[in-house]
């Protein structure tokens, strides 16, 4: 439990909690740099803006990019929610949320509708987010061209020229070989008609939510030191061929074993008796359905 030791270290080191640390762990200069980067990213939707990613008390690859954005944005009036795979109870989500809370005093919530800032890994909430909210996505590999061009410098040149021929070729070869585009989570998208962007490993189910949403999406890749953004009301289209249209995951004849929902992204676990158990990945949505609360889930 790498991340836990990191946090523990800070707590032990400083005697109690985060006394002696700055509000939001990051120093003011780091926050300012991240804020400047976020504003640039918003002004150039889908373009990866490099930033001086700081070392965090959480391991690289465990949400340091999202965490730096969250800590640079969060203020006294915010309510935060952190999810991993849609689940607030996932240990890494718990660990990130308590770090944010302990270093800022921000209110925490498990309810999508109550949060002003939601940090997430691999999911966009089922409940439609509003203009008063922001979604901060943790990103492992920000470069959508990485599998067709491993050089960062060369990929950058391709983005500069909007030269996505090799990306299209790779998708075409995929169709030829497999009969369809086989990308599952992290399906590449075109943002504002200009930049091909890695949406982070969200399932296809969540890709349409990025298009013309009311809310702002910020993407943080700590290890790769990149921040990018999709502003509200921005065109975000999956890369697709006319004769091989993009399709999302389907759960025919399935429902959540816990709440009965048939309109949410379901995840399955094998059971001891050989059957499988399907439940909502979004625990907040599942709670709402279970409690009979009506939430808007049409994005």
């Amino acid at each position: 439990m790498v991340s836990a030791t990191g946090v523990r270290a800070l707590i032990d080191e400083r005697g109690a909690e985060f006394e002696g640390y700055t509000f939001g762990f990051l120093d003011d200069m780091a926050k300012r740099e991240i804020r400047r980067t976020i504003l640039k990213a918003v002004a150039i939707p889908g373009h990866q803006v490099p930033f001086g990613s700081r070392e965090m008390p959480i391991a690289r690859g465990w949400g340091t990019g999202g965490l730096q954005i969250t800590l640079a944005c969060v203020g006294a009036d915010d309510t935060i929610k952190v999810i991993d795979q849609g689940d607030d109870a996932s240990v890494n989500a718990v660990n990130l949320r308590r770090l944010i809370a302990k270093t800022t005093g921000a209110r925490e919530t498990l309810t999508t509708g109550e949060a002003t800032l939601i940090q997430t890994r691999h999911r966009i909430p089922e409940e439609r987010m509003t203009a008063a909210q922001m979604l901060i996505l943790q990103v492992p590999i920000p470069e959508p061209l990485r599998h067709v061009e491993r050089s960062v410098a060369a990929a950058r040149a391709m983005h500069a020229e909007a030269d996505y021929a090799r990306m299209w070729l790779a998708l075409y070869e995929d169709v030829v070989r497999n009969g369809e585009v086989t990308a599952g989570a992290g399906y590449p998208v075109m943002v504002n008609g200009r930049f091909v962007m890695a949406p982070s490993p969200i399932p296809r189910w969540d890709i349409p939510k990025l298009n013309q949403a009311e809310t702002l999406f910020l993407f943080g890749a700590g290890r790769e030191k990149r921040i990018y953004a999709v502003p509200p009301f921005t065109n975000v289209q999956p890369l697709e061929f006319d004769d091989y249209p993009f399709e999302i995951e389907a759960f025919p004849n399935m429902s959540c074993r816990r709440c009965g929902a048939t309109d949410s992204y379901l995840v399955t676990s094998p059971q001891a008796d050989g059957s499988t158990l399907s439940v909502c990945s979004d625990t907040s949505y599942c709670d709402d359905v279970l409690a009979g609360r009506k939430v808007e889930n049409q994005w």
Binding site: A16, E17, F18, E19, G20, Y21, T22, F23, G24, G75, A76, R97, R98, A101, K102, T103, T104, G105, A106, E108
Partner: peptide, 10 residues
Amino acid sequence: ATDTSRAPRQ
């Protein structure tokens, strides 16, 4: 659950 009573102030 998190005790934030000793969180750093802005």
